[in-house]
Design a protein around this nucleic acid. Structure first.
Lengths: 231, 231
DNA sequence: GCACTTGTTAATGAGCTGTTAAAGCAAGGC
DNA sequence: GCCTTGCTTTAACAGCTCATTAACAAGTGC
């Protein structure tokens, strides 16, 4: 249905913004143009986009802060930053936020287009047709991902968002190795030492929650990941 | 799999090549440096890499041609091109070949590092459609590479990462010689005396694990390698 | 015999992991 | 604004794993 990829552009320079929008629309993209971080974020909350193109220099909220806020909404949407200056610090900060790419103004439209396509190509390569289950039997436990609930016998507890995500990944890989790297990437949208440790904390919490049925366990595979073992 | 990501750098400028190699090795990557397309391609055929960093200007074969040849070997390995000129045509051609990114010399090492990480992050997130088998029958044993498990009758043991890799190589060469050099290169990405000895230690461990079925054995071929013999 | 390669075992230590607690942070109420 | 509340991330520390190294025995081929 929606073959046309949806781009969110946040750019305060009206002239450049319109040029960009027209060019990208002529290339077959569906483009939403916002002029500041506020409206960018609220647009993002309302609709789904395949890629965000953010100017680094924006009134009120800068592009990086906006990216962080969008990232809390969506863990996987890619960012591409536009920057007037070719400043190293900017770039490093941007990549830390999870940027896919940087384009320094003035830029060549064809090149921008190529880079957009590279990002989207990568993106679509990993989007598998998802019709994944949302309910899981784990030994004597019952886990409802959609309801964010974990039940054991007659008691039910509500999971937090992250607990829910981690447990779901484990369940989808039941009795198979869930690779650390893959899990962290899926949950946080990027990798670093602390995110890995944070992930470990959730494993620890889930182990505690699942302790009542000794036939199930979350086993570590050294340097590789974890397995949810269910007999 | 291997933790340290493997990079293939093809760069004819020896000075730059070494700088790059040292920098990236200090950042924890496993780097193979080649000085021309020929050796780059043959290295690629021997070992698996996670990313190819190719200079556009190379003697004999240019970077784009090399990329095309590598692409026929491997449909998914990402490319990153190094270019002295910031030429639009170059970039467009590069993206057409399937480039993930372009870095214009002189470049900042930190930025290059970020861009490498962005590419690898995406790469690792998507499930590699594994074409090689991951399950093997070895005499009375059953080896599951994906689960890192070795079973005999009703007992199953979990292998370590390296044990798993070595056993897989042996299985892929079942009843054929697995050359020392090739094995060490595939597992460690480089060669030296101690790595060879370490490899021997794994052979010894695997022999011990596989002792319960006398019809299989890991035989040494003096100065050449090993054979996993299965009747 | 000699120079080497290989087999095996054991010890070491870098770097992972498990866990708890404290700090950070956002959202909602007042 | 300010406090409360609930969740996530960071920090800290203890404990553990496993690849590598070393050391020595045994095998190979000249």
């Amino acid at each position: 249905m929606h073959n046309r990829k949806r781009l969110l552009i946040v750019e305060d320079d009206i002239h450049l913004g319109f040029l960009l929008m027209e060019f990208l629309e002529s290339e077959g993209f569906q483009v939403k143009l916002c002029r500041d971080g506020q409206s960018g974020l609220s647009s993002f909350k309302k609709e789904a986009f395949d890629l965000c193109i953010l100017d680094v220099m924006l009134p009120h909220t800068d592009g990086f802060s906006l990216a962080r806020m969008i990232r809390t909404e969506d863990k996987s949407v890619p960012f591409l930053f536009l920057t007037a200056r070719s400043m190293k610090e900017d770039k490093l900060q941007g990549f830390a936020v999870g940027a896919e790419d940087f384009i320094t103004k003035p830029f060549d439209e064809e090149e921008l287009l190529c880079r957009i396509r590279v990002i989207l190509r990568r993106q679509s390569a990993q989007q598998m047709p998802e019709c994944k289950p949302t309910q899981f039997q784990i030994g004597k436990y019952f886990f409802d991902y959609a309801k964010q609930e974990l039940s054991f016998e007659n008691t039910t507890r509500r999971l937090t968002e992250k607990e829910n995500e981690v447990l779901r990944l484990l369940c989808l890989h039941q009795n198979q190795i869930l690779k650390r790297e893959e899990a962290v990437e899926k949950i946080y949208g990027r990798q670093d030492y602390f995110l890995g440790r944070s992930f470990d904390v959730f494993i620890s919490r889930l182990r505690k929650m699942l302790r009542q049925d000794p036939s199930i366990q979350i086993e570590n595979v050294f340097k590789v990941g974890f397995i949810l073992n269910v007999e």
